[in-house]
């Protein structure tokens, strides 16, 4: 069972559920105020959106909500946690991933398809991906800032760096590899109608892990 966490202001939870079900997985929602994850949760997705209206800093308030204590316990026990876009911001603010997401260097909302290099195939999420994937980005605060020598950078933008992230990072994982965050949206790249199916491999690996 994959639990998709909803906060006030989450937007992409339905796309995350659709992506999981599309590869044969089961998905359910968890609410931000819940103290526990649903029974049988094997993986958690923190979806995209604008939790709490991005007030203070994107992801800052959501990262201190009750469900995040349960997500932290799940991660500490080796369970899988995937944060997409705002979910990546939440995981960084929660300290489950290194660094922080800053305002894009352009100070603008960037919405476009991008090519990602998959730098690390040795995580439970990336085993089935090719060398590069095509996925969309849509964010205003997506520039990862952190120490690239002390972070496991899993995805990078190539050949250009559309948001101005350090080391052109698009996604980073925890040292163990069981927590992954990325700004691009693999859940919006799961159907030919969307222009790419490159995200399917990530969800297939998540469901099978």
């Amino acid at each position: 069972m994959v639990a998709v966490v909803r906060f006030p202001g989450s937007l992409d939870h339905e796309s995350a559920v659709r992506a999981v079900r599309g590869v044969g997985g089961e998905a359910t929602y968890a609410w931000h105020a819940d103290p526990q994850l649903p029974d049988g949760t094997r993986a958690v997705i923190i979806p995209g959106g604008f939790s709490y209206g991005d007030h203070l800093r994107p992801g800052a308030i959501a990262s201190r909500s009750p469900i995040m204590d349960a997500v932290r316990r799940h991660a500490d026990a080796g369970g899988l946690v995937l944060g997409i876009c705002n979910g990546f911001q939440v995981l960084c603010e929660a300290g489950l991933l290194p660094g922080v997401l800053r305002t894009n260097a352009t100070t603008s909302f960037v919405c476009r398809q991008v090519e990602l290099e998959v730098l690390d195939h040795d995580t439970p999420f990336t085993r089935e991906l090719g060398a590069a994937i095509s996925v969309p980005i849509k964010n205003h605060d997506g520039a990862w800032f952190g120490d690239p020598h002390h972070a496991r950078i899993v995805f990078s933008y190539g050949p250009e760096n559309p948001l101005g992230s350090v080391a052109s990072a698009a996604g980073v994982a925890s040292a163990r590899g069981n927590v992954l965050g990325l700004m691009p949206h693999p859940e919006e790249a799961v159907d030919p109608l969307l222009g790419s199916t490159d995200g399917l491999g990530l969800f297939a690996a998540l469901v099978r892990a």
Binding site: L56, R57, A60, I61, R64, E93, G99, V100, R102, F145, G146
Partner: peptide, 9 residues
């Protein structure tokens, strides 16, 4: 330290 500022930035 706990919420209002992010010490990284």
């Amino acid at each position: 330290e706990r919420l209002l500022a992010n010490a990284l930035i």
